[in-house]
Write a protein that binds this DNA or RNA. Structure first.
Lengths: 161, 161
DNA sequence: ATTCTTGCAAAGCCTTTGCAACTGC
DNA sequence: GCAGTTGCAAAGGCTTTGCAAGAAT
């Protein structure tokens, strides 16, 4: 987990502002407020289903359709980032959280965040070269994490006995 | 389009070899041969649907289910790479084609390939730091390509008249 | 002959949507 | 009270699968 980025507004305020400023005015409802608070109270990666399960387990009354609709708005508002990993769509904090990339463990499905000082320059470079206007990017390295590697090695050793 | 990488076998041969070497022996059928030849005769990015359409247009008799099944084998065999771009799954040559990353134009859906000498080192670095064993990666920069940017600018100029 | 592959259509999975009831402003 | 939101269930897109018929070895 990386250090947070200082922001002047709470996610909730920022979302209200986004809703107000649309060409077509949108409303800030109780369920949306619950979702924003719930999501920004912890830091992790989640997909729609996980969020629904967790929120229900914690006593919130959320409907699948509304969660999908609200997640879309949150991405649009710049509060969340969407990640495509294989067939699943994950979400993670964007507002108040630094830009980063991911290592994705194909065994335990853990996501490890990383930053690298050279990346930004490379991207700027490449885009310039192709006259390309970046809107966003995703850089995901797939493989096996330290723990799972250890487990595999232990297992291999046991198999040899 | 990048320069090809020299390989000793034809894609077809390499696929046969893969099929033979499985724990459970698999067969090389006419439809699979058609697909391998068709796919490796041109270089481009495609999804299952596009491939089916194009092959049908060119007079081949392919069924959706078999195309999906064969594409999966081709990825497994190391002939194709799979890309997740938003909701779509694209395929591209892996065998005989160099490692590269993508710029994806959100307007015209063009995919531009690029390579950058610094990337490999960064990845090796990051993986080492986390004791992570890489199996593959995807680096996709989303945005608007040179042509679409030009078109937008022209349009803006016209709108101002 | 045996075993794998094919094609169909049905089922799956995840996400979106039409619509009537509801609620924020 | 108006306009946007909700929840349901139904529809969507894309992919996978069960099964009987067909093909490869």
């Amino acid at each position: 987990m990386l250090p947070a980025v200082a922001v002047s507004q709470s996610p909730e305020e920022k979302f209200r502002e986004y809703l107000m400023s649309r060409p077509k005015q949108q409303r800030f409802t109780g369920q949306q407020r619950d979702m924003v608070r719930y999501i920004f109270q912890k830091h992790n990666h989640f997909d729609a289903d996980q969020l629904i399960d967790e929120m229900k387990k914690d006593g919130y009354d959320v409907s699948r359709a509304t969660v999908y609709r609200t997640l879309k708005k949150l991405v649009d508002a710049g509060l969340l980032r969407k990640l495509d990993i294989g067939p699943r769509k994950y979400f993670e904090h964007d507002y108040g959280y630094p830009q980063h990339e991911h290592l994705y463990c194909v065994i335990c499905h853990k996501m490890i965040e990383f930053q690298h000082p050279g990346l930004e320059g490379i991207m700027r470079n490449v885009c310039q070269q192709h006259n390309f206007l970046e809107q966003g990017h995703s850089f995901i390295i797939r493989g096996t994490c330290a723990e799972c590697n250890r487990a595999k090695m232990t297992k291999r050793r046991l198999d040899l006995v």
